[in-house]
Design a binder for these strands. Structure first.
Length: 700
DNA sequence: TTAAGCTTTCTTTTT
DNA sequence: GAAAGCTTAA
């Protein structure tokens, strides 16, 4: 190289700081200052305490957008939400804002993200990557099976049933406690049987691993184990997820919170943002503890704390009532919600004679609201427990008001769906004992016993399904043989690649050629509706090219109808009925809360502890704050107690404890006005002559 | 051992 | 009022 000439005088080039509007999104205009501060909060651990209706989701959506605009690649983002529905919704909104594809962002519930991350590392933990995921019913069945395995007769000494065992195991896992202490604290009556209970649980754990299956809790437990036991995996994930955002952090349990901590442990910046509202913590029965939110600054010293306290959703009337209610709770994080809306209509408290009248009232009001211009989809009816919506459903059907129930038995948990899916699960995971037995028990003359014997015969094999296909059936009961042969034929065919790459085809094959259609006809009175469901399931499955992937979505996601509105007609405007739990994060122009009677809402069992009662009150708070313009609180004055028996019911204490200035009392015709004010020493309503005086007092 | 018929029990909330 | 549990007949 020849020697260079002396460099010319360098040209001066001025770097200008990019003005804020170089962002694609006009954050200044679309957010208030509180929200903007969160969106632009610097790296580092951050808590956002966000009151009801303060634009929490919006803020998160804009934060994700802002991060992407600032060059954070989507694959470096981890967004943990409470439901998969909201993960999808938020992803969609960010995509809408940015006009970019965010498919590479990791978003979902702890459970579904856990499942995704665990697959490739399953071998490290003693599973195969094709592990099955057990839903609550599967876990219950396996626990009961483990009980009978150990020769414990359920009848004797009132040994706990599968559901109770599952609740115990699950609560222990989610709160990081020992099974013993959970039993000691919450189920002391089982202490006498502690040893057999432990033995059953041990057996359950073993059998899950043998079946290459994880229950919901394992998705979290194993995720945590993976991070703890394999630092290289943890570091890889920690490096990958440069920014972690967790929504609804008040409903995160200890185990989930530990997972977040582990993901951040190697990170210099500890770039974790958690968002929540302690006043809306309503999942303690699942081990959630608002302490995860409130204690965050202690676990992450130097954490920045932001607050969103401006409520955009509700009228001042609604907010005042909600605030007055939650003020009865002792332990809470002080927070002032500022109303921004103009004065609206008063909150209505309505007494109905009975459940039928309550239903009539709601139906009639819904029609009026619609006439006034509120679309049905802008009206929600909330209740504490699903069965409380029964009468209303009947009334709505009678009046031809379209509605959708956002709760109750999920589509994928219904027997016929699970029956068919058992075939596919077995295909993907040939060790899946639960699915094997479930499918076999559908055959004529095959019951619990025969299925167990056949499983025993093949369970030792590394490929139990293959072993079963070649099994000598001579010992099987003669009556069952034909069915077994047919089942084998079905499974043999399903193993062909043309089916394993098309869950939709596989489903149709099971129903049509595998004979499930006939089974259903014998098993269900409403079989034609069920078969329609199965065709809908096949339709839904068309979107998947891999049976395993399909099954994972199906087990961890809710309702296919809710996922995309493919099936939605133009006028699919429907009233929404929902449990308060499922209404979390949603809002409607007009909200009805029904069934506000003592012992129902608050739920009788929850009232046994002060904490339980406070959680019920938070639940009431969540319900009330779902309303934007109109809130109507309905309490029936009589209801069915132990089915068939009409009993007089008191208005909920959540109504009685409110100052009467905060609502307008509505009296329905035929109903006598009932004062709410004096709570404890008020004579029982049974004395009222209009209220079925001959009925018995409620039995407690 | 299964399936049908009779009796008891039960209802919180969900990934 | 329905689903799960128990009893009994086949």
């Amino acid at each position: 190289m020849p020697p260079e000439a002396p460099p010319p005088v360098p040209k001066r080039y001025v770097l200008r700081k990019a003005p804020a509007r170089s962002y694609r999104i006009d954050y200044g205009r679309e957010l208030n200052p509180e929200q903007r501060a969160v969106v632009f909060a610097p790296d580092g651990p951050t808590v956002v305490v966000a009151g009801a209706g303060s634009g929490k989701t919006r803020t998160l959506v804009y934060r994700v957008s802002r991060l992407v605009e600032d060059g954070v690649p989507p694959e470096a983002l981890l967004l943990l939400t409470f439901t998969n529905r909201s993960a999808k919704e938020m992803t969609r909104r960010v995509e809408g804002l940015l006009g970019a594809d965010l498919a590479r962002m990791t978003a979902g519930t702890f459970h579904s993200v856990g499942a995704r991350l665990l697959r490739p590392h399953a071998e490290l933990l003693g599973y195969r990557p094709n592990f099955s995921i057990l839903d609550a019913e599967d876990s219950k069945d396996l626990l009961e099976s483990a009980t009978s395995d150990l020769g414990i007769p359920i009848t004797e000494r009132r040994f706990p049933k599968g559901d109770l065992l599952r609740a115990i195991v699950s609560f222990a896992a989610n709160t990081g406690q020992k099974v013993d202490s959970v039993i000691g604290r919450d189920y002391p009556h089982l202490l006498a049987q502690l040893e057999p209970v432990r033995a059953v649980i041990r057996r359950y754990l073993e059998r899950k691993v043998l079946a290459n299956a994880m229950d919901y809790d394992d998705l979290l437990l194993n995720w945590k184990r993976l991070l703890e036991m394999f630092p290289e995996v943890r570091k890889a994930l920690g490096t990958r997820f440069r920014s972690i955002l967790v929504d609804e952090f008040q409903d995160v349990n200890r185990l989930q919170s530990e997972i977040v901590d582990l993901l951040a442990v190697d990170s210099e910046t500890k770039n974790v943002m958690v968002v929540g509202d302690d006043a809306q913590s309503i999942y303690s029965f699942r081990g959630a503890d608002a302490e995860a939110l409130l204690g965050f600054p202690d676990r992450y010293p130097g954490a920045a704390v932001y607050r969103l306290e401006t409520n955009y959703r509700s009228t001042p009337e609604i907010l005042r009532l909600a605030d007055a209610s939650i003020a009865h709770n002792g332990r809470r994080y002080e927070k002032t919600l500022v109303a921004t809306r103009e004065t609206g209509v008063p909150v209505a408290v309505v007494g109905a004679r009975d459940l039928a009248q309550q239903a009539e009232f709601v139906a009639q009001r819904v029609l009026e609201l619609r006439d006034e211009g509120a679309p049905l989809s802008e009206i929600g009816v909330l209740y504490r427990a699903h069965f409380q919506a029964l009468e209303l459903q009947i009334e709505l059907t009678r009046r031809g008001i379209p509605y959708e129930v956002r709760s109750g038995l999920r589509f994928f948990e219904q027997a016929h769906v699970k029956d068919v899916l058992a075939h596919l699960r077995l295909l993907v995971n040939p060790k899946d004992e639960m699915s094997f037995k479930r499918a076999l028990k559908l055959l004529p003359k095959v019951g619990e016993r025969t299925a167990a014997v056949l499983w025993e015969a093949v369970s030792e094999s590394p490929e139990p399904l293959a072993a079963f296909l070649g099994l000598e059936l001579g010992k099987a009961p003669p009556g069952a043989r034909a069915g077994l042969l047919r089942f084998r034929e079905t499974m043999r065919t399903l193993k062909k690649p043309s089916y394993s790459s098309s869950p939709a085809e596989a489903i149709r094959y099971v129903v049509d050629d595998g004979g499930y259609g006939d089974v259903a006809k014998g098993k269900f009175p409403n079989h034609s509706a069920r078969l329609d469901d199965l065709e809908a399931l096949a339709q839904f499955a068309l979107a998947y090219e891999d049976v395993g992937r399909f099954l994972e979505e199906v087990t961890l996601f809710g309702d296919p109808a809710g996922e995309d509105n493919v099936a939605g007609d133009e006028d699919d405007e429907r009233l929404v009925l929902s449990s308060v739990h499922q209404a979390k994060g949603l809002e409607w122009k007009a909200v009805f809360v029904i069934g506000l009677q003592e012992d129902r809402f608050p739920n009788l069992r929850a009232c046994r502890t002060p904490e339980g009662l406070e959680e019920e009150r938070r639940l009431f708070y969540v319900a009330a704050t779902r309303a934007k313009d109109e809130l109507t609180l309905v309490h029936p004055l009589s209801a069915y107690d132990r089915y068939g028996v009409v009993v007089v019911t008191e208005p909920s204490r959540f109504l009685r404890e409110l100052p009467a200035t905060l609502y307008e009392r509505w009296v329905l015709d035929e109903t006598v006005d009932v004062s709410l004010a004096p709570a404890p020493d008020r004579p029982r309503l049974a004395a009222d002559p209009t209220l079925a005086p001959d009925e018995d007092e409620p039995v407690n």
